[in-house]
Write a protein that binds this DNA or RNA. Structure first.
Lengths: 355, 355
DNA sequence: CTGTTAGCGCTTTCAA
DNA sequence: TTGAAAGCGCTAACAG
């Protein structure tokens, strides 16, 4: 007996469009048309059908609908993790815009593992997401570029659109939308803020070579130094991940290694800043009286620790990504948007009077 | 001309199982069997098919597969918002466990609006999610109970499972899994902590009647007071939402309304605590020297402001929800789990010496 | 305005 | 071990 014969074994099952049609005494096509609301129909029929729908508690089967050629209404977002505030805010932006455009949102996490990322993108491809949004900084080596380009092409082939959010572009021949924000500009601005206050020895916390985000922030820092004709001391660039614990560790080690040779600190993000601040306090140094401190992101702890930082339009990033992806008439288009960043001045910087 | 005739208009399209079959010189059934790996097959055929798959860059169509009767491998999570740290952490837990069990994760947000929630659950039903996880506190009135019960039954009918995460149970006859954490116990413990330190006038910040989470925390507070034979003053319970800004506002208003009539503050969550702390500082009061302060959740700002608080197993909540939902052999089962909470002592409480 | 019907791409009998 | 064919639930020609 074929599986499909489905003997009436008493097991109730969700009702189908056929059940509704039978119940209302019309054809399935009529039900389909009335539900999609794209065709005119007799009010009486309409009423009958809606009544049947309600009585049978019918919901359409999204798989069947997707199969039958209707563009599946969903966008996918792939992030390293949802708990990181930056990703969470971007994800929120994606969500908002997706809902506004009547789309479902699928979220995948990779934990920062490229292999896992590949698998996740594959999965999204199976699901026929209208757009796949990759967010987060990564190692920008050649292998990566190659793979991304392949994703983009495969997605374009399937009528979908790859979006790189907060990642560097891949080149004009790759059909991907890129939505970035101005890391270099923000870092330049906040370093200048410190320099204008008289600081010349500024510790950079969170250098992480090969990763696009810290790399650009470091670049902005260096450029500001150069613009202000302040000598660049590589010894002031401390390596570390972009986490609170790393910030704490970097600062403790630096302070314990010898006499303090800096008057201000630029943390590559607010979490590092929070960790560094805890370390400073532990060693009896106050912010901003003894040491000035700035961060980057304008996220969660920033306000609580009165941190002067660079505001990043996280939600806007996500919203723009969706808008661009769905807006482009032809999927597989290359576009590039750069969102601005700006300083938020709180109370973590004091002028340094050089003598 | 029927849509399906699909003239070869030069538009490349994603390859189907049929393309693979043709390319490998076998039947679609063979390809299907080899890809699912559930049937024995000749090694030579296997190789041919895998080669074709690689060459054509074939990925299966999840819709078709879903339609053909394979349980769609996805769980859905519905939250108020992903940026709220609590939801983010629960979502992360759900993600983790979902991935571990080989499932895709669909995230929907409601913005706290019941109507929107209904629509979202409906959507998840269309998608045939294996489990629908609702997280977050809500108004627990009769209309809500009714609607939830309906969800649960509809989902069960479709072979799915409703999970209520951090929400009160609905009753034994409703086929839903409930995963809660001990709000009352945690609130009781931390209030006792304050009472043991000699505080008798404890301000409760964030009463919000009708919402399950603040309600239970308030209940724990009251019970601790009663257990310690400390008179209960309703005037110490301040109404407000569970947000930083509300915490700030509540505290400012209280301080400006007259002489301070409390020595300690129990904020219904860490965000309220952070806002209240900012307000206290603004009015020249230090934590913990002048006022003791505790929170609930053990999330983001808690560590940075040295807050003694109640730890909630956020991720574990999400993981348990998925495990239970997928583990129950028969969907539509009722289960109930209560996860424990415990105090994290930092540095926001000082003994109060009563005279 | 409504009914009939042919697929969408896949899995799973059944037969060989 | 493999192939042929039915059918999952839905939509969109096409023909009334």
């Amino acid at each position: 007996m074929p599986r499909q014969a489905r003997p009436d074994d008493g097991q109730p099952r969700p009702s189908t469009i056929r059940d509704v049609a039978r119940h209302a005494g019309v054809s399935v096509a009529t039900v389909s048309r009335i539900l999609s609301g794209t065709y005119p129909s007799a009010p009486a029929t309409r009423t009958k059908v809606m009544k049947a729908v309600r009585e049978l508690d019918y919901v359409a089967n999204a798989h069947a609908r997707g199969l039958a050629g209707v563009r599946p209404k969903s966008v996918a977002i792939v992030v390293n993790s949802v708990v990181s505030p930056h990703y969470a805010h971007v994800a929120q932006g994606v969500q908002d815009q997706a809902v506004r455009e009547g789309r479902l949102c699928i979220v995948g996490t990779t934990g920062g593992d490229p292999e896992h990322e590949l698998a996740t993108v594959q999965l999204m491809r199976e699901e026929h997401a209208e757009a796949v949004i990759l967010v987060g900084n990564i190692v920008a080596d050649d292998a990566y570029r190659e793979r991304m380009a392949d994703y983009a092409r495969a997605l374009a082939l399937a009528g979908s659109q790859l979006v790189l959010c907060g990642r560097p572009p891949l080149g004009d021949d790759v059909p991907a939308v890129v939505v970035e924000y101005d890391n270099v500009g923000g870092a330049h601005a906040i370093t200048s803020h410190l320099l204008s206050a008289g600081h010349k020895r500024i510790l950079f916390l969170g250098r992480y070579d090969g990763y696009s985000t810290p790399d650009s922030r470091l670049a902005g820092y260096r450029r500001a130094l150069a613009d202000h004709r302040v000598p660049h001391d590589p010894g002031l660039e401390v390596q570390g991940r972009m986490q609170r614990s790393a910030g704490y560790r970097m600062m403790i080690e630096r302070l314990d290694a010898g006499p303090r040779d800096f008057t201000a600190v630029f943390a590559a993000n607010d979490q590092i800043a929070a960790g560094a601040r805890a370390a400073l306090r532990e060693r009896g140094l106050r912010v901003p009286d003894d040491v000035s401190l700035v961060g980057f992101d304008d996220l969660s702890p920033a306000e609580d620790i009165d941190l002067t930082t660079v505001h990043v339009p996280h939600e806007e990033l996500g919203r723009t990504a969706v808008r661009l992806a769905l807006g482009s008439e032809k999927p597989g288009t290359a576009q590039h948007v750069l969102l601005g960043t700006h300083i938020i001045v709180r109370d973590s910087v004091r002028p340094y009077l050089d003598r």
